[in-house]
Design a protein around this nucleic acid. Structure first.
Lengths: 146, 146
DNA sequence: GTCAATGCAAATCGTTTGCATGAAC
DNA sequence: GTTCATGCAAACGATTTGCATTGAC
């Protein structure tokens, strides 16, 4: 687990290494995701920027491009929750899976070592080299079962 | 596990029970999915219909409506594979999870009882009543690791 | 000064909707 | 005959693209 500053440094390094340019916009998008507690859609990131950085005139197209870039270099991850569309989260968090309440939308994160181990075993048995995985359990949370 | 005929009968029963009408279009969509070996997108179902049932003039809107209906009454299931969008499969198959090759697109299905059990336990611990879940492992298959 | 990244608007993709017509009951 | 389902085309929301301009190096 690294600090926000570390991750920003990481981004600078990657950008330099690729011969690309370091821009405020990419940094802002990354920061928004690092400071968000949940999972944000592209549009939500865009709105956050508009409220938290009103001075920076960032277009929605740039948000999409930045998200694509950050995911490609593995600083963020995208997940698709059922009908809710694509959402993003910073990779600073440890890997985890999701319990999703289909009634109120609540999301609980969890991690189960045994499941992780079994996933690796299944992959090996099928000669797959796993790069990522995602697992979602859909249902009704305690509060919504009335 | 039931035969195609059983499932068609099931559809007829559901439709009657709901006071709706039994149409050839819904039947065709269901049949396409029962006979497909993989997972089809709405567009792919539509194209299949155009080639396999060229006489029936089915519109894409009807395909979407039929898919929505069939999923609602639990005869088919939808899954979202990363960037690939929503795909559908018949519920005649037993539940299973997916290994997906991000290089060639190959999909291997698997089932692990221990993982299923653990998922239930996690849900219970968090007071969730699970209705469904989906799990995908992404990576590179044996053939693509060169 | 060069080249990548941006903002904007237009284009595109997948999906949904309104509505007049047709088919099931 | 009534009502639901359909086909078509238009509408829609999310994402992408083309292009002239701006900003990082």
């Amino acid at each position: 687990m690294s600090t926000n500053e570390d991750t920003i440094e990481e981004l600078k390094k990657i950008v330099k290494q690729k011969g690309l340019k370091y821009t405020e916009q990419r940094e802002i998008v990354l920061k928004i995701l690092m400071n968000a507690d949940g999972h944000l859609s592209a549009e939500e990131v865009y709105n956050e920027i508009k409220t938290k950085h009103p001075e920076s005139n960032v277009g929605i197209a740039t948000v999409y491009r930045a998200l694509g870039f950050l995911e490609e270099v593995n600083l963020i991850t995208s997940i698709t929750f059922g009908a809710d569309g694509k959402k993003y989260e910073s990779n600073q968090k440890e890997h985890h899976d999701h319990l999703i309440c289909t009634s109120c939308g609540k999301i609980v994160e969890f991690l189960d070592d045994e499941i992780e181990k079994r996933q690796d075993r299944i992959a090996k048995k099928n000669k797959f080299k796993i790069t990522s995985h995602s697992m979602q359990l859909y249902g009704t949370c305690g509060d919504c079962q009335d």
